[in-house]
C-alpha cells in the first residue's frame, strides 16, 4: 500500500467514495463473449476504466513435447499489460508482477477446467490489459473464465473475481486506482459459486480478523453478482448464434 498523502479523503461525510459509490458497490461491468476471430474462445471486459481482452487457444498439442503431461492438459496463462495501459508508459513484455499474476490466474483456472479430458495438450489463456485502473487481475480472471467457456472447454464452473480493500478505515468493494494507491489493504478474491471454493486469494496491507472476514463476505457476495453477468454474456452470444442458425435454416 502506498503512503497516503495528507489531506486526501477517500470517503466523504456521506460515506460515499471518490467516484460516488457506496462501500459495497461495484463499478459498472460490461462483458462480451466471442470477440476475436482467430482465437478459439475470447472475451472482452470493461470494468470501470479497465479494458481487458482475453483470447483462449486449445486444447492443442503442447510444445516442447517434454513438457506434456500424459495425464492432463497444461493450463498456461499469460497476463500482459499494454505499454499504454497506464499513465507512465510500461515497457512492453513481461515483468515480475505480470509473471506472478499469470501464475496465480492460471492456477485458479486449472481448478475449474476438466484437464484430465485432454492429456498431452495445452490450454493457453492470453490476457491483454489495454487500459488499467486497479483490479485488472480480477477483471482478467473473470473475463478469462468467459473466454474458456466460449472456447467450449469443459469446466466445473466459471470463476468470478473481485478485489476488496480497506480505505479510510472502512472495508470497501472493488477499489479504483486512487483507493488502491492510498488505501490500507487490498484483497483480490476469485470464487467458484457452484462449489463455494476460493481459488484466488491474495492480500497486502493491514487487516484485523474481523475486517478480513467482512472483506471476504463482501467479496463473495459481489462475485455472485459478477457470476450472473458472466452467464449473461455467454447467453447473449449463443442466443445470437442460435437465432442466426434458425434464420439460415428457414
Amino acid at each position: 500500500m502506498g503512503i497516503k498523502k495528507e489531506g486526501i479523503k477517500l470517503i466523504n461525510e456521506d460515506g460515499l467514495r471518490i467516484d460516488g459509490r457506496k462501500p459495497d458497490e461495484l463499478r459498472p461491468i460490461k462483458i462480451e463473449a466471442g470477440v476475436l476471430k482467430r482465437a478459439d474462445g475470447s472475451a472482452y471486459i470493461e470494468w470501470g476504466k479497465n479494458k481487458i481482452l482475453v483470447g483462449v487457444y486449445g486444447p492443442r498439442e503442447l510444445h516442447p513435447r517434454h513438457l506434456q503431461d500424459p495425464t492432463k492438459a497444461k493450463v498456461q496463462c499469460r497476463y500482459d499489460m499494454a505499454s499504454f495501459s497506464v499513465i507512465d508508459r510500461k515497457r512492453p513484455g513481461p515483468d515480475r508482477r505480470s509473471i506472478e499474476i499469470s501464475k496465480i490466474i492460471g492456477e485458479a483456472l486449472e481448478n475449474v477446467i476438466f484437464t484430465h479430458q485432454f492429456p498431452r495438450t495445452s490450454i493457453d489463456i492470453y490476457i491483454e490489459v489495454l487500459e488499467a485502473n486497479a483490479g485488472t487481475r480480477c477483471a482478467g480472471l473473470t473475463a478469462a473464465s468467459v473466454a474458456l467457456a466460449d472456447a467450449g472447454i469443459p469446466m466445473k464452473d466459471l470463476i468470478a473475481a473481485v478485489s476488496v480493500g480497506k480505505v479510510d478505515g472502512e472495508i470497501v468493494l472493488d477499489l479504483v486506482k486512487e483507493e488502491d494507491n492510498y488505501g490500507e489493504a487490498d484483497v483480490p478474491i476469485g470464487y467458484v459459486p457452484r462449489t463455494g471454493e476460493v481459488v484466488l486469494l491474495q492480500m497486502d496491507g493491514d487487516l484485523s480478523y474481523e475486517e478480513f472476514e467482512k472483506a471476504l463476505n463482501m467479496g463473495i457476495e459481489a462475485c455472485k453478482k459478477i457470476y450472473e453477468m458472466q452467464k449473461d454474456a455467454l447467453k447473449r452470444k449463443y442466443v445470437k448464434v442460435a437465432t442466426e442458425i434458425v434464420e439460415e435454416v428457414e
Binding site: L36, R38, A39, S42, L53, V54, G55, Y57, R60, R78, D80, A82, S83, P92, G93, P94, D124, Y126, E128
Partner: peptide, 18 residues
Amino acid sequence: TSAELGPLASPTFEAGPP
C-alpha cells in the same frame, strides 16, 4: 515505434520478445 504480435492474435504468434 514498437509492435507486439501478442499470442492472442493468432495460433502462430508466440509470447516473448519481438
